[in-house]
Amino acid sequence: MASHAEIYLKDFHLRRAGATRRAYGNHPARSTLAEYPSSYHALAERVPNGEMSRTVLDLACGDGPLLQILNDRGDAGTKLIGIDMSDGELSAARAVLPQDVRLINERAQELSLNTGSVDYVLSHMALMLMDDIEQVIREIHRVLRKGGSFSTVVGRAFLTGEVGEVFLDIFRPIAKANLTHLPLGDARTRSEAGWSELLQHGFVNVVFEDIEIDWTPTPEQLWLDMLDTYDADRMSETARAQFKSELLSAFAPMRREDGTLKTGWGLRLIQASAA
């Protein structure tokens, strides 16, 4: 049976399909190793260009931005599969992706794909939200061929710098007074040590890469993007109005000459090979 968290996530992504693309699809991502047009591109780079035959699975594919990047390469030998539990996201994905991209509506904990049938498993900003992450990792390992590659981008730091500090000072008391606890994901997905533990059985050559995304919104733009977050979405209208008012007031004196704020996100890219 679906948990309360899964029921909420399915409802949210039905109502706000494409939320993850809107947050991360248009912001250039930097790392210690390279620069990417976005964090989706950073993940797509884990699949090398070429005409070789291979199958790539995008796990929790959302409305398809990562699949779109991979498809646009034109690698004829690449078979693309997207899996997501959200009907709303998959409907949006089908509207923009070609018919030969296979889209499947199912949970990551119970994949219908054959054992050893996938060469690359990718996942963008999703695994840190999932129930029973150990079962998800087992399923990823099962569908990967031996030596196959697993890569995922997960969150590391939300709203960096002084903007992030001010945001949390305002958010915490409002959330404490207005939001019921909704457990999303496993705490181990939020640290390198936790991922090392999760991948210790069945995976080798685990590598971590920090990715930084700069973001310079106006206070009003930042607030509009907050509406695509789970916490703001779950607030009552009254609490949301209070949150907006306090945020905009606090951010007003922090604006730079052009009216924008300096902030961003810290992400973590994890790569491993199936033993």
Rank of each mutant, 00 (worst) to 15 (best):
L129Q: 03
L144T: 07
T78I: 13
I174Y: 09
G82C: 06
T152I: 14
D132M: 07
D63A: 03
L159K: 09
C61L: 00
V154H: 07
N105E: 14
L67H: 04
V153R: 09
S123E: 02
G64I: 12
Q68C: 08
A175P: 12
L90M: 12
M85L: 15
I174F: 10
L127F: 12
L127Q: 10
V166Q: 13
V143E: 06
L70P: 04
K176I: 00
E106A: 09
E139F: 05
I174G: 01
S151P: 12
A60I: 03
M130E: 08
A157F: 04
F167N: 02
D131H: 14
D63W: 03
D132V: 12
C61Q: 01
N114S: 14
M128F: 15
V101N: 12
V118S: 10
I81N: 01
R156Y: 07
T78N: 06
M128K: 07
A108S: 15
I137E: 07
L168V: 08
V96S: 09
V136F: 12
V163I: 13
I69R: 03
S112R: 00
D75C: 15
G116I: 07
F171Q: 11
V153L: 14
L97A: 10
G82K: 02
L103D: 00
F171H: 07
T115W: 00
Q68W: 00
T115L: 00
G164T: 04
I140R: 03
G116Q: 09
R156H: 13
C61H: 03
F158Y: 13
